[in-house]
Design a protein around this nucleic acid. Structure first.
Lengths: 306, 306
DNA sequence: CAATTAATGGACTCTGGGTATAAAATATTC
DNA sequence: GAATATTTTATACCCAGAGTCCATTAATTG
C-alpha cells in the first residue's frame, strides 16, 4: 500500500515545488483514470489508492475535474519537455525530428489512455476544463504549424494552419479507426509518416485548393473571442423562469430572472445594470437546484457585457 | 401484472409505430440535450418538459443513456432517409449529390448540437452506448467509402477506406478548429468541398503513398473482434481484491476474486470453469459498491473465453 | 362492463461529489 | 522542548440525481 511511482518525473514545475502529497494523489488518480476511466473513478477510489483522507484530497484539488486538469497539465509539460530534448542539437528542418516529436504526444496520450485533447474537446461540461482543453488543442495546432514552417519554409506559408489541421485530422482519425477495427498495436510512427506524406503530397499539388481555408492568424486568439448567443441565453432564462414558477422558486429569484430576460431583450442592454445584479443573483440561487444552471447563464451574460 | 422492464416494449424496432408518448419524450429530451448538454440535463428536467411522470419515462427507456441512444438512432434514420431522397433520380457519380448527402449528417449533428458520432466516440463510459457509437462511426465510414467508389471507380479501389478516413478526418477537424477560433457560422458545404478536393488531390498524386494504410475489409467486422487484454483484467481483479480486504468484503467475494486471478494466470485458463463461476460472482456482488466494476470485469472475462 | 394496460406521483434507495469540523499528527518557530 | 501553526485524518453530513417500487388512477379494448 505504499506508493511506488517510479517513472522518474521529469516534470519540473515552473516555480512551485509540487508537494509529495500532491504528486502522490495525482499518481493514484492518474492510474485509476487510465484503468477505469474518468467517470467511473470515484473520489473514494482515489482516496483508497492514494491512502489519504478526503480532506487531504480537497486540500490539493478543488474538485475531481481540477484533479484531471492537473494530470493533463503535467502530461503536457512532460510532452513539451521531451520534445525539447529531442530537438537538442538537431536540425529543425529534419523530418525525422518532427516525427519523433509528434509521436511523443500521441504515445503519451495513448499510453495514458487519456484520449488526446483533440479527441475529447467537448467531453466535459465543465466550462473551465473545456476551455483548458480547447487551449491545449489550439497550442498543439500552433506548434505543428510552426514546425511545418521549419520543415517546408517555402511550401507551407499561408497554408500552415490548413496543413496542421489536415495533419492532425488524418492522424487522429486513422488512430480512431484503427481502434475500431482491431486490437492490434498500431505503429504510431507509421501513422504519422502517412499523414505527413499526405500533407506533402497536397502541398505539391495545390491545383485543387486555391485558397487556404483557415488564415494563419486564426488561432491567435486576440479578439475573435466567441460571442455569446444572446437569444440562447434568453431561452435558458425563460426555461429557468418556467421551472421556478412550477416549483418553489422564491419571488426574488423569479424577479431576478425576469429582470435579465427583460434587459437582454432590449436593443442595448445596460451593462452596468446587469453587472450589478449578477452577484446577487448568484447568491439568490446559492444552494438550490438551479445553482449550476444560473452560474452558467450568468457567466454567459458576463461575456456578453464584456 | 405490471412489468417494469418489458424488453419488447422497450426496444421498439424501426417498423413499430413509435407511440406518441415516446416521441414526446424523445422530443423533449432532445431539445434539452441540445440546450444544456447531455450531462447537465437531469431526468427531472425531461419529465418537466415532457410533462410526464417518472414511471412513464422508465416505461419507455431503461436509462438516460438509452434515451440518448434513441435520439441518436432517430437522427441516423432521418439522415439515411434524406440521403436516399437526395439521390433519387440522380447519378451516383455526381459529386454534387455526394456533397449534399454528406452535408446532411453534419448539419443534422450541428443543428442538434450533438457532436458528431465521430466527435464523441469515447465520451461515454457506458459500454453499450459506446458500442453503438462505434457502430455508427463504422457505418458512416463504410458509406463514405462506398460513395467514393461510386464517384471515382478507377481511382479509389484499394484506397477507399483510406480516403474515407482522410475525408472525415479533415472535415471533422476543420469544423472543430473553426469552432475554436470563431463564432461565425461555418459554411459546411465549403468544408466538404475542401476535404473532397484534398482527397482528390491525393488520389491524383499517389507518389507519396505507396500502400493503402487500411485494407478495405478493415471494418467488415466479422472477426477482428477485439481481444481483451488478460493482464489488465487481472490487474483490475487484484485491485478489487485489495479493496475487498480493506473493506468489509465477504469471504465468498474474496474467494471468487482470487479464483479468477489464479485461473486467468494459468497458461490455459479453463473456460468451462470460468463460465460457471461468472454467474455466481455477479450475484455475490449484487447491490454492492463493486457491482459495476465486477460487471465490467466479468464481461471481459466472458469475452476472453468467448 | 370487466379486464387489461398505460400513466401517475410520490416515497424510497443508493451513489457519489462536495462540505464541515473536531481531534490527532506533523512541522515550525523561538 | 514547549508553544504555535499547519496538515492530515476521520467522520458525519448535505445534496443532487439516477433509478426502483408500488399503490392508485386513467384510458383502452374486447
Amino acid at each position: 500500500m505504499f506508493k511506488t511511482y517510479n517513472k522518474s518525473r521529469l516534470s519540473l514545475q515552473k516555480g512551485d515545488i509540487m508537494s509529495a502529497k500532491r504528486k502522490q494523489i495525482i499518481s493514484a488518480a492518474h492510474q485509476l483514470f487510465v484503468d477505469k476511466g474518468f467517470a467511473l473513478t470515484s473520489i473514494q477510489d482515489i482516496l483508497d489508492k492514494a491512502g489519504i483522507a478526503k480532506g487531504t484530497f480537497y486540500n490539493y484539488f478543488e474538485s475531481k475535474n481540477q484533479c484531471l486538469k492537473a494530470i493533463l497539465e503535467s502530461i503536457s509539460e512532460q510532452v513539451e519537455q521531451e520534445r525539447r530534448e529531442i530537438a537538442i542539437g538537431k536540425e529543425m528542418s529534419d523530418e525525422e525530428v518532427f516525427i519523433e516529436q509528434v509521436t511523443v504526444r500521441i504515445k503519451m496520450n495513448r499510453q495514458h489512455h487519456l484520449l488526446t485533447v483533440f479527441e475529447t474537446v467537448s467531453f466535459s461540461e465543465d466550462s473551465e476544463l473545456k476551455l483548458f482543453m480547447e487551449e491545449q488543442h489550439r497550442a498543439e495546432l500552433q506548434w505543428i504549424g510552426s514546425r511545418f514552417n521549419d520543415l517546408y519554409p517555402d511550401k507551407a506559408q499561408d497554408y500552415t494552419l490548413d496543413y496542421a489541421v489536415i495533419f492532425t485530422g488524418i492522424t487522429h482519425h486513422l488512430i480512431l479507426t484503427w481502434k475500431l477495427g482491431s486490437s492490434q498495436e498500431l505503429d504510431i510512427e507509421k501513422v504519422i509518416r502517412y499523414a505527413l506524406n499526405s500533407v506533402k503530397s497536397l502541398s505539391n499539388n495545390q491545383s485543387y485548393i486555391i485558397d487556404p481555408f483557415l488564415p494563419v492568424s486564426w488561432l491567435d486568439g486576440d479578439d475573435n473571442s466567441k460571442e455569446v448567443d444572446i437569444t440562447s441565453v434568453i431561452k435558458r432564462l425563460e426555461e429557468l423562469n418556467e421551472q421556478l414558477t412550477k416549483q418553489k422558486g422564491t419571488s426574488k429569484q423569479k424577479e431576478l430572472t425576469q429582470f435579465f430576460i427583460a434587459e437582454l431583450q432590449k436593443t442595448t442592454p445596460r451593462a452596468f445594470l446587469l453587472e450589478g445584479v449578477i452577484m446577487s443573483t448568484k447568491k439568490a440561487f446559492h444552494q438550490t437546484r438551479f445553482e449550476h444552471e444560473v452560474k452558467q447563464i450568468t457567466e454567459k451574460i458576463w461575456k456578453i457585457i464584456q
